Simulated assay, not measured.
Amino acid sequence: MASTSGFLGGIAGNPADVLNVRMQNDMSLPAAQRRNYKNAVDGLFRMSREEGWRSLFRGVWPNSFRAVLMTASQLASYDGFKRLLLEKAGMEDGLTTHFTASFLAGFVATTVCSPVDVIKTRVMSAKEKEGLLVLLRRTIAHEGVGWMFRGWVPSFVRLGPHTIATFLFLEQHKKIYRHLKGVEHDDST
């Protein structure tokens, strides 16, 4: 279910992601190559008008694959880390355990997603359409394997707090739900 929701979310959010990448990248381009979108609405309309509606879905496959990897790696690693902390580290099921497990899950998700993030950003910011395999070959030839973790720290700074907040809120929601329904707490949930 995590993979499916990540995949569908990646598709639905792709137009905004393409626009975000382009707007952030615009100032690094020479003046003649800048797109100079006035705002997000202008950017979406101009992309559709000037490049066709398909431009809104440039990089949709790497983006959706990244969303699958992120969602699945966050959920699976959070549950695994939480279980380890409870069973092996002797921690109690509370905020400290939830924070630690979610921090580690954010670390895993960032590491798993990093190579796809780099490719996705390069595909979305490109002026010309280039095949994924051609892009990969060219990138590896020019940068070696270090390209896979370019931008890892900023990605973690973004994804780490997001993951922590998500799981802290989820655990508090579960606690409130159990209390309201009179359900006994079970460490495996």
Rank of each mutant, 00 (worst) to 15 (best):
G106Q: 06
L170W: 01
R178D: 13
W152R: 05
H173V: 15
T110S: 15
K120D: 11
L170S: 03
K181V: 04
F169M: 10
K38M: 07
K181F: 08
T96W: 13
R158K: 11
P115R: 04
F7H: 04
T71K: 12
V134M: 05
L75V: 15
K38S: 13
G59P: 10
K127F: 06
N14Q: 06
G6R: 03
G182E: 01
L95A: 15
T121A: 14
F99I: 12
F7P: 04
R22F: 12
A16R: 07
K88W: 11
A31R: 14
K38G: 00
T166V: 09
R35A: 03
W152A: 07
D187R: 03
I119R: 02
G94F: 05
P62I: 10
F167Q: 04
E51L: 09
L132R: 06
G94N: 14
K120V: 09
A12Q: 02
V108K: 04
R138S: 13
L69F: 08
W147I: 10
K181G: 02
L133E: 10
M47H: 09
E128V: 05
R178L: 08
M124C: 10
V157M: 13
F167A: 08
E50K: 13
A165M: 13
A2H: 09
S102K: 05
D117L: 00
F65S: 12
I140T: 07
L69A: 11
F107I: 14
D17M: 14
G80H: 04
A141L: 04
A165G: 15
P62G: 08
G160W: 05
R138T: 09
V21R: 07
K181A: 09
Q24W: 03
R35F: 04
G94A: 12
A16I: 09
G131L: 02
V183C: 01
E184W: 07
L85V: 05
A2L: 13
L8N: 00
R22E: 15
R34T: 11
K88P: 00
